[in-house]
Simulated scan of single mutants.
Amino acid sequence: MSEKSIPVERMRSEVALAEPYIIRISSLYDARGIHDVSRPHRLNFSALIYITEGEGVHYIDHQRYTVRTGTLLTLGRNQIHSFAKNRSVDGYVLPFNCTFLSSASNDPYFDVMIAALSHINCLPSIGDDIDHLFSTMAAEFASTSEFKVEIIRGLLRSIMLKSVVPAFKAHYDDAPPVVTSNEFYRLKHFVDSHFSDRPSSLDIALALGKSVKQLDKLAKSHAGESVKELVDGRVLLEAKRLLAFSQYSIADIAAQLGFNEATNMTKFFKRHTDVSPKDFRQLCRMGLRQK
């Protein structure tokens, strides 16, 4: 991997793709070292981080969060995060493949849980009922029960549906409704996988076997945006991540994101943020991160 790029952390085994694991924050620091855990890195999976003692800070994308006993952090796939350079907290890290959340192919809650993971990154203080659910789930990882995986899935879904999803729906007017299919997840997954190709609405419709009208209706009903706006939003998010955390030049970033010229990316970036890529990068390096 190029030294200019953002490190990618993947699930540690094929088994972990189907069966999540849990680790103490203190054990993570001991196993990987301060330099490794405090270096911004992109997750190729989802994760919950629950603080059980202490007070400190945690970084997710362009935000710095103060964390303390009772704080729950959530991370969606492709988000960038880092632990503090000086460990002052302990708790649990639960990495999992996002598909682990699904109870069935037509799970009515899957889309909204996935959306909530990457939008609600910090719940400053969860209640005793959620603390109990997390403690029960952490203990279940030591179980020898033949139902262990399903019990953990159920507890994880309960934590999501009792805390993270309600927070998402309370803070975002465009929170997706409860639906009976995972069609929006398929659309989001395609955009996540192909955004750097700058696919048109027609390209995506053909790939997913839908009409442009059907896809735009799906996107509008779940995110309040058109398919083009979903693609533009993902390109913008990646531009911000690369500007903030990589050492690539602005011209290199423009090329990676499918722009013919760096000036085209600059116009695109300024249109959406009112600042230039150069100024955004400078603000991030000064610690003045923006959303």
Rank of each mutant, 00 (worst) to 15 (best):
L123G: 06
F190V: 00
D197W: 11
F168M: 02
Y65N: 09
L28V: 09
R186P: 00
Q256C: 14
F168N: 01
T71I: 06
D173I: 11
N260Q: 07
R289I: 11
F110C: 06
A219M: 04
S200V: 08
E229Q: 07
D203G: 01
A239S: 03
K148N: 04
V57W: 10
A47S: 15
A175N: 03
C284E: 15
I250F: 02
F96Q: 01
V164C: 04
V164R: 02
E238G: 01
I80F: 11
L17W: 13
S125D: 08
E150V: 14
H272T: 00
L156E: 06
H81W: 04
S226M: 12
E9Q: 11
M286Q: 13
R32L: 15
T144V: 13
S125I: 04
D30V: 14
I25M: 15
Y92H: 08
E261C: 01
F141P: 09
F100D: 01
A207L: 06
N121G: 10
L73K: 07
T144K: 13
A207T: 06
V8S: 02
K240D: 01
K278I: 14
S103V: 05
V112T: 09
N97T: 09
P177F: 12
R234A: 07
T263H: 00
P95T: 07
D111L: 02
L123W: 06
L155P: 06
N78F: 04
V231Q: 10
D203E: 03
Y109K: 13
E261L: 01
K240S: 02
E19D: 09
R153M: 01
A139C: 07
L133V: 14
R285Y: 15
S201P: 09
S13E: 12
V15L: 15
R68K: 15
L117Q: 11
E238K: 01
E9G: 08
R234K: 11
K213S: 14
V149A: 11
L202A: 12
V212M: 12
S135G: 15
A251I: 05
T74V: 05
G91Q: 03
A239D: 00
E9R: 12
G209I: 13
L237M: 09
S5R: 06
E55F: 07
N260L: 02
A142G: 10
K270H: 04
F147Q: 12
H58T: 08
E140N: 10
E229A: 08
S82C: 13
I49C: 15
T266H: 00
L17N: 14
A205F: 08
T66H: 08
V8F: 02
E261S: 02
C122S: 06
V112Y: 04
L48T: 12
D197N: 14
A16I: 11
V89E: 03
A223R: 14
H119P: 02
A167I: 04
Y248T: 06
L43Y: 13
I159E: 03
